[in-house]
Design a protein around this nucleic acid. Structure first.
Lengths: 236, 236
DNA sequence: CGGCTGATTGAAATGCATCAAACAAAGTGG
DNA sequence: CCACTTTGTTTGATGCATTTCAATCAGCCG
């Protein structure tokens, strides 16, 4: 039996923001019906095309959500971290999964069965609205990203992604972005070739916008990056 | 007073698929609270950044939903037609509109106030689920399109868009796609320059994949186009 | 120590954007 | 009804950002 930093049995979803509108009773059944597990880096939670039985709440760790395009090139849709839920889209549509998900930092996740989700929607309108808001937020991001990919250069997009990573993940004491991505993964977010990312990162490095240390990236000239990213003022 | 092909007062949303789960009572209030209007081609229903007071049901016509990127270049997100609803995303998130919408074919739309929507979500779980499914479907499309734009060539994307238009809009007796888009609008869907679209359309034309007649496009070699589009088998 | 995966750099090929100019179509006003 | 303006379409020529291919290198692990 593995030693865990926190016991899986003790995990409760009561403090999960997503469930803030739940009654005492609802929380109790939820905590009873969920199944928590510890998953190692590299694990694939589900694959595109598979049938899902529930959604996952991320207690800890980072999960990569991606689609496989042609030539098996993956396109990263987003990263999910503590407090996020994943796999709810296909679940709600009652379709096979349209994305895959892979653990890229050791994680603890709770699986909540479809039936439980459906019950909450049926009984708790406030929960439905929370859920609707989450899907809507994701849709907004997606539309925004479509516009970016369609109109911006790779350089602009990389700058933007770096800013996004900075805002999404904690910085350590040295202000270094706390997510470890391969160059290829960065390329699969930006939607470009690995070599292009390498060249651009090295260029950003030379022009003192960032500092590179293996996979660790530190932003040292934020305004400079923002300028390159060409953000639309009112949307970011 | 304009002569209309159908009286605005007589319009009822009872047959609208989106409202299929509504009770008699709910339908009555809905029909009472909605406001229908006839809108001419070229009209802008709402603009990015504006505050919305409700969503719209499209009874007739075609509406273009788009975002304005940098350099004022527009990115078309989707087209809404009979049976679709628009503007619900920002409404549900209670944010300023993140897209603009313009009538591109004379339309009849019904405006439903936010309050009415909220009431339905509160009282009718089946309606919430319908709504959730719609947002989820749109999110799926968006994710799919992100992957396409990021990985496919302009030629592939144009072929794909033509197929999408063919499936989304009625064909006339001559199998011509019944939506009239400028080359620039096609470019703003595909995410490329107008000139590129012109050149590719002309190439498709010469290789007998399509037939051009002004803005009317007729697909004459469907398998050929599908091959060029490089569709992912299980997703289209 | 080999074998693996990921990172890096260079050189060459190319798809696409951009610029410019001409043309066509469609609406406007005298 | 015709000049006039405007808007959309088309074609050609040029440049550049990015991809692709190839080779080398670095780090890691059993």
């Amino acid at each position: 039996m593995k030693k865990l930093d926190e016991s899986l049995d003790e995990i409760t979803l009561s403090s999960f923001r997503f469930f803030k509108s739940l009654s005492e009773n609802e929380l109790n059944s939820l905590n009873y019906e969920k199944t928590c597990s510890s998953v190692k880096k590299g694990t694939i939670l589900y694959k595109e095309g598979s049938r899902l039985t529930g959604f996952y709440c991320i207690i800890k760790g980072i999960i990569k959500i991606y689609k496989t395009g042609h030539d098996d090139k993956e396109q990263i849709i987003r990263f999910a971290k503590q407090g996020d839920i994943i796999a709810y889209r296909s679940l709600l549509s009652q379709e096979l999964a349209s994305t895959s998900s892979k653990v890229i930092e050791d994680a603890i996740v709770c699986h909540v069965p479809y039936k439980t989700l459906l019950n909450l929607i049926e009984k708790n309108p406030a929960f439905s609205i929370t859920l609707l808001r989450i899907v809507c937020a994701e849709l907004k991001e997606a539309n925004s990203y479509i516009t970016d990919i369609a109109q911006k250069s790779v350089r602009e997009r990389l700058a933007e992604i770096l800013l996004l990573l900075k805002d999404s993940f904690e910085l350590d004491s040295e202000k270094t972005i706390q997510i470890s991505l391969t160059r290829e993964e960065l390329a699969n977010m930006v939607g470009t070739a690995t070599e292009s990312i390498i060249r651009l990162l090295s260029e950003f490095n030379q022009s003192k916008l960032i500092e590179l240390n293996g996979r660790k990236i530190k932003i040292i000239n934020l305004p400079g990056l923002i300028k390159i990213a060409n953000l639309t003022p009112h949307l970011k």
